[in-house]
Design a protein around this nucleic acid. Structure first.
Lengths: 331, 331
DNA sequence: TTTTCTTATGAAAACGTTTTCAATATAAAT
DNA sequence: ATTTATATTGAAAACGTTTTCATAAGAAAA
């Protein structure tokens, strides 16, 4: 790749002048500018990003990092797309890591990102990395959390109204006449699981339906737990007539069980899942689901992060996006 | 972040010595090393990647780029994971772009990656960017192509045995007694579509079954085209008894149509899709599909790329990975 | 004419590394 | 005692930018 020096040589000016031209500095003679621009084009010059990063101090490096726990989850795929689009639209670059729920890896990746000189980080935190995140915050690295916060620490974040989303879903089920609705949540400890559970309770309360604790179970974010728990639930003698699944992998597992058991949807059991998926409509029957605006979450997160990079001391904000209940054929 | 200078100061040595220590250079007194290491730990020092990149010349920067056309496609998600794992295992970093079939964006992203100083690029090429890719090759930037090659140019690549995979799938259908098997391919012009079509023909030839050209259609990589084409096919009076779908989005669209039409799978129509998906088993009925080892493709691609970076002039290689036919309940 | 402003330009420092070269001290060989 | 080899260290250059400062040439003002 050609460097400033090469261009300067070709255009017979100093590298300072070339720098001025490519940075649109006004103090340069129009004729000179023309000559330099010509040389730039001829040599296909692009300023070296890492040389720039070396020169400019942290916060102006035009690089952010994104850390998601599981890129196989379509929700995070949407987030990634949103982040990517917004980042490049702002003339930044993004480096991404997918830490697959592995604590060691997450810590390593965060270190790598710091070494890369990111101006800030967007993280979907899991329990494993709250320590690391606190450390980053102490070091004043701009951070935006997505999907879920970390209780007790003050940081920008963008999330979704989990509680409302869940209660909407359960209300739909209730409106269809269901009285025995099971909730299969994700990992019990994480905030989203709790909030969705709250929403489940809210709906029951609103319609004065008694909650049967036996119909409430927590698993994790693997389809296997959906499969196993739904099997347990559906083989009760007094089985639930509807399932509300706390995340998309659990939904998938539950679906598998329902089909294996030969139950009809929605006549034998209805099901609604938190998290819509691009192929929900291709399922048989098409899945009723709660859509989380992952793409929008990604975009918002970038917006907040760039704001904070610009203005490191402003007070932390939290943006809450709406979910959307998409009624198809499983309810 | 602490710099070499800070560490040097704290340890009372020159930055050269610190550099030697962190690079495991042998010419340093054990006592000195201990002192330096202590300072490194205390200051939580990590060498700045971009400063390193500035110093070392292209090919030693420990950074590669990955460009995939569509990260919403689960196949590419696997590729991404494979690349990521392999890259970090080799102490490299990766910067990723998802160009969503958009020519402008692809070109922009490639330029960004060059400016970032990548040592090499892994690209799943589409027709739009062959020009750009040729240019890169002329500039001697190490490149590995995945998924599909570009006819007429010599470059490393890793792909899957599309032809064999397709013929296996169609043979399975034939073995189940099907004689009227439709093929719904992706974009007609791209190599994978053609090869899968070849495989379709191979199987027919092998079992001496006449091919009905009316059952062969090409669409693109969107589920809509699967939906529309399958509808056209299945509403013929002499309709096919089985569908072989050329990519996973087409499969999804076809599934939607089949359900809408109220046809039973596999008794009314059987279906097998190229590309397995993590949730194939949750479909109703669970989908028979051809699995492409995306993760392995990603890993191989990195392996090849690092080899080429090491040895830029070696002759180009092509590795072909096997597909795997996963028989579930739609055949 | 002299002074003061602009405008246009370049030299040089700085960013944080790696690497080459030179310098010193000590040990080994003569 | 002198030379030679070895081990350990540091100074300085280089990588490609941005930015500060200085300078020169005109233009405007006095």
């Amino acid at each position: 790749m050609a460097s400033l020096k090469d261009v300067a040589q070709k255009a017979n000016v100093s590298i300072t002048t070339v720098s001025r031209v490519i940075n649109n500095n006004k103090n340069v003679n129009p004729d000179t500018r023309r000559i330099v621009l010509k040389a730039v084009k001829e040599l296909d010059f692009r300023p070296s990003k890492f040389a720039q990063r070396l020169r400019v101090k942290s916060g102006k490096r035009k690089l952010v990092g994104l850390i998601v726990p599981d890129i196989q989850n379509p929700f995070y795929v949407d987030v990634v797309r949103g982040v990517e689009d917004m980042v490049y639209a702002n003339d930044y670059a993004v480096i991404m890591c997918n830490f697959a729920q592995d604590e060691k890896k997450a810590s390593l990746y965060i270190d790598i990102m710091r070494a890369e000189g990111v101006d800030g980080l967007i993280i979907a935190p899991t329990i494993h990395i709250v320590g690391k995140i606190k450390e980053l915050i102490k070091n004043a690295l701009p951070i935006v959390l997505i999907d879920r916060g970390i209780p007790g620490i003050d940081v920008d974040m963008v999330e979704v109204d989990n509680r409302k989303g869940a209660s909407n879903a359960v209300e739909l089920l209730i409106s269809k006449g269901h009285k025995r609705i099971a909730y299969i949540g994700g990992i019990k400890e994480i905030p989203t699981s709790k909030l969705r559970y709250q929403g489940y309770l809210d709906a029951h309360k609103k319609y004065k339906i008694k909650v049967d604790k036996d119909l409430i179970e927590f698993g994790n974010s693997k389809s296997e737990s959906g499969r196993i728990i739904s099997e347990k639930l559906l083989s009760k003698k007094n089985r639930p007539t509807a399932l509300f699944c706390g995340n998309n992998l659990i939904t998938l597992g539950a679906l598998e069980t329902i089909h294996n058991l030969g139950l009809k949807i929605p006549s034998d059991v209805a099901i609604v899942g938190f998290d819509d998926m691009p192929w929900s409509i291709s399922l048989n029957p098409p899945l009723t689901a709660i859509f989380q605006p992952g793409y929008e979450i990604g975009r918002s997160a970038v917006r907040m992060l760039l704001d904070r990079i610009d203005e490191p001391n402003k007070t932390c904000a939290k943006v809450t996006l709406k979910t959307q209940l998409i009624e198809r054929k499983t309810t």
